[in-house]
């Protein structure tokens, strides 16, 4: 469904993606994109959405190169990393607006109930707390029945109950045969949910395989440990240690 072919991207002198190639074909799968801060996860995701335009290389979604196209985004639901919305809108207005702009069948009601947002519907977005904003963000991302679901740090700011809801929703998405790409820094979540791990470091894919293979390769008891060892193995020690702390934290 997604094909990334030798994609590179720099912001000024900073090379964020270096010659990345990978494909995500299988449906009904949850793929975790991992990596320390600044490893290029968000840039990769935004490239798939056409928000960041690669310097070199080509990305295809559902069989079509995406450069200069926009209609393919009908197949994608996206959860941005930071829940930023127009401040002077109310929650209900935002939901209606996105539905009006997208013109695809949407089902927000169940999600609103699920996250207990009913009482917040008529509040302005600027008055909501960070966690509540993230819930609104999740409603926007999950209310469409699209084959592709791209979530950039879906757990940020969520309370434990909401995280359980999120896990359920992700499981349902997998059962429905959707392809889910998600980034997160919470390793137990990866261990519990992901079928596959893509590990990015300094803009390159360092590792890609199933959770079992990851743990086996690094002889680790859990994903957290495996990722820490993966980091220690790549690059010089003191630089990696910095990164270990940022991944593990």
């Amino acid at each position: 469904m997604i094909r990334i072919d030798q994609v590179s991207k720099s912001f000024g002198k900073l090379e964020v993606l270096k010659d990345i190639s990978c494909t995500f074909e299988q449906q009904g799968r949850i793929v975790a994109i991992l990596g320390p801060n600044g490893s290029g996860k968000t840039t990769l995701i935004k490239s798939i959405l056409g928000m960041v335009l690669p310097d070199v290389g080509e990305i295809s979604v559902v069989g079509q190169p995406i450069r200069g196209r926009w209609a393919y985004r009908e197949a994608i639901s996206y959860l941005p990393q930071i829940a930023r919305f127009p401040d002077n809108l109310r929650v209900i207005e935002l939901l209606r607006m996105v539905q009006d702009l997208r013109q695809q069948p949407a089902h927000p009601e169940q999600l609103i109930k699920r996250f207990g947002l009913t009482s917040h519907l008529h509040k302005r977005l600027s008055t909501l707390s960070g966690g509540t904003r993230q819930k609104v963000n999740l409603v926007l991302a999950f209310m469409y029945d699209t084959p592709l679901l791209i979530l950039d740090e879906p757990t940020a700011g969520l309370d434990p109950v909401a995280i359980i809801q999120l896990k359920e929703m992700l499981g349902q998405a997998r059962e429905k045969g959707k392809l889910v790409l998600l980034t997160t820094h919470i390793m137990p979540l990866v261990e519990e949910l992901a079928d596959e791990v893509v590990f990015l470091l300094d803009g390159r894919i360092k590792f890609r395989n199933s959770i079992e293979v990851l743990k086996h390769t690094f002889n680790a008891a859990n994903v957290e440990q495996a990722i820490a060892r993966l980091l220690l193995n790549s690059g010089n020690a003191h630089r990696s240690l910095d990164r270990v702390s940022s991944v593990v934290s």
């Binding site: 926009w70 209609a71 930023r84 919305f85 127009p86 401040d87 702009l101």
Partner: peptide, 16 residues
């Protein structure tokens, strides 16, 4: 001021 709105729109199936 409408940067958030713009970013929201950019991820939707809308022509830039």
């Amino acid at each position: 001021n409408s940067r958030e709105f713009t970013e929201l729109l950019l991820a939707q199936p809308i022509r830039r």
